[in-house]
Design a protein around this nucleic acid. Sequence first.
DNA 1: AACTTTGTTTAGTAAGTTCTAAACGCACAA
DNA 2: TTGTGCGTTTAGAACTTACTAAACAAAGTT
Lengths: 176, 176
Amino acid sequence: MPAELEPIKRNFIEGLSRISHFWGFPKSMGAIFAVLYLSPAPLSLDDLVAQTGFTKGAISASVRALARLALVHRQTKLGDRKDYYVAETDFYKASRTILKGRENSEFDRAITSVRETLTELKAAAAAAEDAELQFLLERVQALQDFFDALDALTSAIARLQNLGLPTIQKVLSILK
Amino acid sequence: MPAELEPIKRNFIEGLSRISHFWGFPKSMGAIFAVLYLSPAPLSLDDLVAQTGFTKGAISASVRALARLALVHRQTKLGDRKDYYVAETDFYKASRTILKGRENSEFDRAITSVRETLTELKAAAAAAEDAELQFLLERVQALQDFFDALDALTSAIARLQNLGLPTIQKVLSILK
DNA sequence: AACTTTGTTTAGTAAGTTCTAAACGCACAA
DNA sequence: TTGTGCGTTTAGAACTTACTAAACAAAGTT
């Protein structure tokens, strides 16, 4: 193996760390995924400690978060008490899983409160005729429609069995 | 105007604050947008202070951030030294603007470093034959392909003149 | 000129996050 | 039982961020 390979890997790991941070995740998650993604073999928690420089505790937490996102998978070898981890290589599959998990999130609770606002406004509008109320109703309805469209889109994607390049290209051709 | 309208508005404002926070923006941005969105008339900075409870400084900063995202627009009245702000009501238009602005972001610098990794690996592969190097090359290439697909998709959306419900529905029918 | 009215900038604070270091719990081994 | 190797949990340190309060700058008014 060429000796100058190590700095290249390091740069890659750094890059994924930054991406992870950008999306609001800890940098350690990006780093861990990068190390696993570049490894031909499953890695133990201690391997990850050695290759990332983070402590066991941090790795333990981040690797669990990654597993929840289905970006890494936990393996066990018979007769070996260690856990081993591998990176998911099908990014479309991972995207789908993440989109699916979205429902339980804080985000959905937030947009639920918008929907609540809408129903309350409708109730008020049924009781009394009022110009401002009508205005509010239209506005909140428009926002709700937008959220619904987004939701329809993402859940349609999440439902796809085989999201992949072909699908993306088909969509791209529509958008032309 | 019905008296019980105020708590409904408050709940809506709260909801958008949470959404804002979820997407990694300050809660004040969500609150300010919500107040503007529910207002039939443009509001001054002091109006926003009164209706959100944040201080002038905070509002000044957040409203500028919102304007950069084209989610609110600044207006001036002749003979009035105050600035007035209105909410953008075309969310598809705003989405497009946001997607366009993405290019200059930290995110793009990050995925550039992945692209760098790839070219470096290719250079190394040209110089020497090596099994692990080949493995790395394939993996990084696959990730790059995924990023490129995402990039093609978002920039195609950003380029659309009239992203809207009809377009979304057309895409949805494809994904069936 | 001096005073008002506006928006912006800055110093400092409070709160939330990510990480480390170390204690802990658990399962297996001797 | 005691010891060992593993992952998890916890207390706290270092850092980041959003916000307040107050000084400041710019422009209009008197």
